[in-house]
Structures are given as C-alpha cells and as structure tokens.
Amino acid sequence: MKALRSHGAKLAALVLVLVLAVVPFYETPYNNNQITLIFIFAMAILGLNLLAGYTGQLSVAQSLLLGIGGYTAAILVTEIEMPHLLTIPAAGFVAMFFGWLIAMPVLRLQGFYLMVVTLALVFVLSPVVKEFPSVTGGPEGLLIDAPEGVGTLATDQYVYLVALAVGVLLFALAARLVNSAHGPAMKAVRDNEVVAEAIGIKTTRTKTGAFLFASAFAGVAGSLYVQVIGYVSPDSFGIGLGLALFAGAFIGGIGTIAGALIGATFVQVVPLLAGRTDASLTGVIYGTAVIVSIMAFPEGLAGLGATVNKRLRKRSTGTSPTVSPDPPTAPAATPTTSISSSRNETR
C-alpha cells in the first residue's frame, strides 16, 4: 500500500483504470464477462487481504460471504424486483451483518483455530440453502434476469463498467483505510496481539472491523457475481471457491492491495487455461502457486520486486561482510553499544 502513496503508483493506477474502462468497447461479451469476474474476485480477495494480510486473521470463509451476498441479491431481484444496482449495497450490508454474527464468536479464536472454524462454516451454506427451497430455490438454485443495458451499452458492457466502478471505489476505500491510523493498528494486531493491546489498540474492535470490511466486500462482490452469471446455486460458493480466494490472496501478495487484482486474475484465468487439458490441473496449479509463493516470495507476486531486490542486496553484502560497514538492517540481537560507550566515558 505504500506503493499507492507515491505519485507514480497513483498515476499508474489511474492509467490502468482508464485502459480497463475502454476495454469493454473492443472485446467480445464473453471476454468482458471474464474480466468482470476478475474484478469481482478482486473485491473478495481485497476484503480478505484486509482481514488476513493486514490484520492477520486467516479466514477461508470468504466464499460463504460471497454466497450470502449472491443469494441476497438474487432473492431481492426475484422476490421484490429490486433494481440490480440497489442490490449491490444491500448485499454488502446483509453480508456485513452475517459477518458480524460470525465475527463475534470466532474472532476470539487464534490462528489456525480460526481457520478450522471458518473452514467448517463454508460447509454450512449449501445444506442450509437446500433446506429452504421456497426462498432459495433449493438445490436447483435461482435464475435471475440480467440487468438491461443502459443507452447504447450492452448488458455485458454495462455490468463490466459497474463492476469496474464499484471495484475502484472499494480499492480506494481499502487504500484509505490502511493509510489511515487504522492501518498500523491492524498490522500491530497481526504482529503481536498482546503488545497491540498493551499499547492501547482495541484489538477486538480492530479485528471485528476488518472482518466487517471483508464481509461487506465479499457481499458486494457476490451481488455483482449474480449479475454476471445470472444464476446462483448452493454449490457455487463451496470450499473450492473459498480455498481459491484464499490461495489468490496469498499468490497475489498477502498484505498488499495491488496483489488482490493479481490474485483474482489467477483465480479466474487458471481454471480456464487448465480446463483446456484437464480441469483437475486447476487444483495442481493453485496449490503449487500457493506453496511456491509462500516459500519463495513471502510478499506474493505483487511484492516480487521488493523480494528480489532484498535478495540481491543480501547477496552482495552476504559474500563480503566486511565491505559493508553499515548494513541496511541491523538484527535484533546486535548489541546496543550505547551502554558500553557511556560506560567508557565514565571510566
């Protein structure tokens, strides 16, 4: 996120948005929908990044909240004929509400216990949805009409541009959040909760806040998902998607905002490419990418430059330690010479 603070990165982001805004006028409806899905997954991953990357709370339940958003939108459209645009904030708020219900108990848990519970939660959506077919359409799911195009815009172009606009909004919101005083507080909670508490950070509130943001982002993404796909079913939001989003967050770079877009591209494009030979390769590629990104690039692909840079620097200092009298980072165990030097003076 430091990146977006600099003017160069801001400019790059602006150019990217402008280019993306022109794309739908030159692409096929199919491709437009694919790119729209990338935007949608990017929103969900962005939310997860705030939660897992910045605040250190590992959740694989993002697909559940995406599903809640999707079903909210689908039900609102079919039951009360709510305009599609309005379902976006509505789905965000409903997902946020469910996020709050989940966050209250589970955020008391630490580390992998949180992963265990969120993993189990993902398995709840499908049976619950199937249990109430009158509202949810049961195992068959719900079909909804696609929004109509506006003016000269076709449906795919319209949804694309809406998703792009919402995406830009959420990215700006996330950037604002992590650059505000909350950013360091979130990182402090991630790095050491006890210390964070000791320096006066309200850790429960910070964690809950991050969970609410993550849920709302996923809910918004869910409503857009329905508008693109035109269909929700109980098995659209299972553990496969949950783990894919989790993987995407780590592949793109956990704790970086730009990483969400990279991760989302990965989540959307890999199955398409793998499907040409064998759909099972999707899992192999996701899994390998997660493992490689954790092992080789702790900061993900978005942090690739930084990681490589660090390694090169390390190598140049590592081979000739005496050449560099003042290395960039002093290890924690380096003796504090101040005490002994003050001692020397008193001597």
Binding site: S324, T329, P331, A333, T334, P335
Partner: peptide
C-alpha cells in the same frame, strides 16, 4: 562473528 553482516564478537 555475528548473526548477519554485523559482527557481534
């Protein structure tokens, strides 16, 4: 020697 490039001893 030391832990990284900085000598402690």
């Amino acid at each position: 020697g030391g832990y990284s490039a900085t000598p402690v001893l």
